[in-house]
Simulated scan of single mutants.
Amino acid sequence: MKPSWNLLAGLYPFGAGAMAVNLFFASLIGSWLGWPVLTPWQAVAGGLVIGLPATYAFACHIAGLMQKADDR
């Protein structure tokens, strides 16, 4: 089920924020392996990019649930 633009626009700030937090904490875990730790600004920039496909996947799931609820 393809989500509407309104649903995507409403969920994107949450998806981008969640991805930014996850990316930042993943870089902290990566520091145990000697990888560099991202700055918060780098994590936010990465979250804005990675948040697009994550939000789309979640919005498809929500649209499917909405369709299933309408069918009942």
Results as ranks from 00 to 15, higher is better:
Met1Trp: 03
Lys2Pro: 12
Pro3Gly: 07
Pro3Lys: 02
Trp5Pro: 06
Trp5Lys: 15
Trp5Ser: 14
Asn6Leu: 15
Asn6Ile: 07
Asn6Glu: 11
Leu7Phe: 06
Ala9Ile: 02
Tyr12Lys: 02
Pro13Asp: 07
Pro13Asn: 07
Pro13Glu: 03
Phe14Cys: 07
Gly15Asp: 09
Gly15Ile: 12
Ala16Arg: 08
Ala16Thr: 05
Gly17Arg: 06
Gly17Pro: 01
Gly17Gln: 11
Ala18Asn: 05
Met19Val: 11
Met19Cys: 14
Ala20Phe: 10
Val21Ala: 13
Val21Asn: 00
Asn22Tyr: 14
Leu23Arg: 01
Phe25Asn: 08
Ala26Met: 07
Ala26Trp: 01
Ala26Ile: 06
Ser27Gly: 12
Ser27Glu: 03
Leu28Tyr: 04
Leu28Phe: 08
Leu28Ala: 13
Ile29Leu: 10
Ile29Trp: 09
Ile29Glu: 00
Gly30Lys: 08
Gly30Ile: 02
Gly30Arg: 03
Ser31Asn: 15
Trp32Thr: 02
Leu33Arg: 05
Leu33His: 11
Gly34Pro: 07
Val37Lys: 13
Leu38Gly: 08
Pro40Asn: 08
Gln42Val: 01
Ala43Phe: 09
Ala43Pro: 00
Ala43His: 00
Ala43Glu: 01
Val44Pro: 04
Val44Ile: 11
Ala45Gln: 05
Ala45Pro: 03
Leu48Thr: 01
Val49Arg: 03
Val49Pro: 08
Gly51Phe: 05
Leu52Trp: 04
Pro53His: 10
Pro53Met: 04
Thr55Pro: 01
Thr55Asp: 06
Ala57Gly: 11
Ala57Tyr: 04
Phe58Cys: 10
Phe58Lys: 11
Ala59Thr: 01
Cys60His: 12
His61Phe: 11
His61Met: 07
Ala63Gly: 04
Ala63Pro: 04
Gly64Met: 04
Gly64Thr: 09
Leu65Gly: 13
Met66Gly: 12
Met66Glu: 06
Met66Thr: 11
Gln67Glu: 10
Gln67Lys: 15
Gln67Thr: 11
Gln67Gly: 05
Gln67His: 08
Lys68Asn: 02
Lys68Ile: 00
Lys68His: 02
Asp71Lys: 04
Asp71Met: 09
Asp71Thr: 03
Asp71Glu: 15
Arg72Cys: 02
Arg72Pro: 00
